[in-house]
Design a protein around this nucleic acid. Structure first.
Lengths: 266, 266
DNA sequence: ATCTGTGTTCGACGATGCTGAACAAGAATC
DNA sequence: GATTCTTGTTCAGCATCGTCGAACACAGAT
């Protein structure tokens, strides 16, 4: 791992989380780096457009190029491109908003947002992140991951977003087991009061959970008995169809997780 | 300038433009770097989530974290946050879609997209880029920039996107002079056939052009005589209001570019 | 089975980035 | 209004850290 690049990435991450603008000294304190070191890193990042400095205050913030890169990521995302059509069909079929998401660290990030067909004005949520344990999208992915990775996620401290968020490790484990058993996850106001969701994992050709998709909306509408079963079936079917598309895209050779080199890194 | 960080940024840029997935050798060839060098950089970027590797093919692509950063950039952008309300008013007033943009290198990037009020289904264009010389948003910004920077942009080769795109340096200079004179730019199918736009620059407290905003839509609707003058006045007024907001946001002391001599009367 | 292609590892050279101290400017304090 | 904190920035030298050539393991094509 190359030191300076890692530090630069850490600076970007710091600028992206929390305060949108930081000073050299502040960054140095947070990352435990000398002031001139941070300065040099920021200067090169600025030259690449990844960071920009406010000429008036001298403080630094993320540059426009990161947005451009984010857009390029979306444009090139195979999961996104392969799920868009089916997400549209699902949204029209059940008349609800549909989200497609990916796990990054301990949160799911929305990579596609299909609007609820009849709602006029809606906010686009692409790029937004939600703690994995507080939404159906996250629970669906995690429940389908290998046990050791799941344990690492469950063991970390889990923040409560509403009064209904599960934070106790045992409760979360139990919930995940239920999700793995049923094949889909249901969330009832665990992230935002009033909102709920139903989601299922999406797998690639090697059986790895690469993301999830599901419906999102008012809990009372989504989670009443008859809607619930209809929605969950539709979601599971669509997610499975996307998984099939992903698997078919590259001739189905064996599981890449157990192929060649199991040599430990370094 | 730190070498390794600059190279890492260049890799990201390469992954973001053109082919969405690249191999180590290919990147090495494009940037004229040794294979192991590229490999080390990629491994570090991958660990930060900025890049991800396809386990099956071994090729690399942008990682989900860049999208997260892009979202953080939007959330923290002062230009965006200060123009959103006024962009909404403008869109409702003239019943057209409104874009707010920033210049990055030789293209404008859309940082905010206000939908045309009565259109039901529209595609969100935030993060998209358009060559500066082929749209009103770009011409408005560039016409308001210092002469040397303008010259550098005009001197570079300009690509034609439609039959109406101006590419000859002299023609572009003439157009920019007209824009600077009138205070707004008009584009007629120079980027996409059928589409046109009217835009004006946005300035910060130091008089620097930090972006632009304008209306976008079918050329025949926007550019007919009476609509054109009504729209251009509304756009100019709104852009000026945003500029005022930006200037007022940090107590109006003197212009930082012209030392202390020209202190404005208070 | 051979061969070119890939991504990857290793080790040693030396360029390269890190650090502590010192600098100029602005803001806040009294 | 002078003082005393800050802040972002510059400059050196030493040692670290990243770079590169050659060699490896595997995949697909010949």
């Amino acid at each position: 791992m190359i030191q300076s690049v890692d530090r630069a990435a850490r600076i970007l991450h710091e600028l992206g989380s929390g305060s949108p603008t930081l000073g050299v000294t502040e960054i140095g304190a947070r990352l435990d780096l000398a002031k001139p070191t941070v300065h040099g890193l920021l200067r090169t990042l600025e030259q690449s457009g990844l960071v920009s400095q406010d000429v008036a205050t001298g403080r630094y913030s993320l540059g426009p190029r990161v947005l451009q890169l984010g857009n390029a990521y979306l444009a090139g995302s195979e999961l996104r491109s392969r799920s868009m059509l089916r997400a549209g069909s699902l949204a029209r079929q059940v008349n609800e908003a549909v989200w497609v998401s990916v796990l990054v660290d301990d949160a799911v990030m929305v990579v596609h947002h299909e609007f609820r067909p009849d709602d006029a004005v809606q906010i686009l949520e692409v790029g937004a992140t939600i703690p994995w344990h507080a939404c159906a999208l996250g629970q669906a992915i995690v429940a389908a991951m290998p046990a050791p990775e799941v344990e690492a996620l469950v063991a970390a401290p889990l923040r409560a977003l509403t009064g209904r968020t599960r934070t106790a490790p045992d409760a979360v484990r139990k919930a995940l087991a239920a999700v793995a058993d049923k094949g889909f996850a249901v969330e009832n106001q665990e992230a935002n009061v009033g909102d709920g969701g139903i989601a299922a994992a999406i797998f690639d050709h090697g059986g790895r959970a690469v993301g999830s998709m599901g419906v999102v909306g008012p809990a009372e509408r989504l989670l009443q008995r008859q809607a619930r079963s209809k929605l969950s079936r539709a979601v599971v079917d669509t997610a499975r169809a996307v998984s099939r598309d992903l698997g078919a895209s590259r001739g189905l050779q064996g599981d890449p997780r157990v192929t060649h080199r199991d040599r430990p890194p370094r």
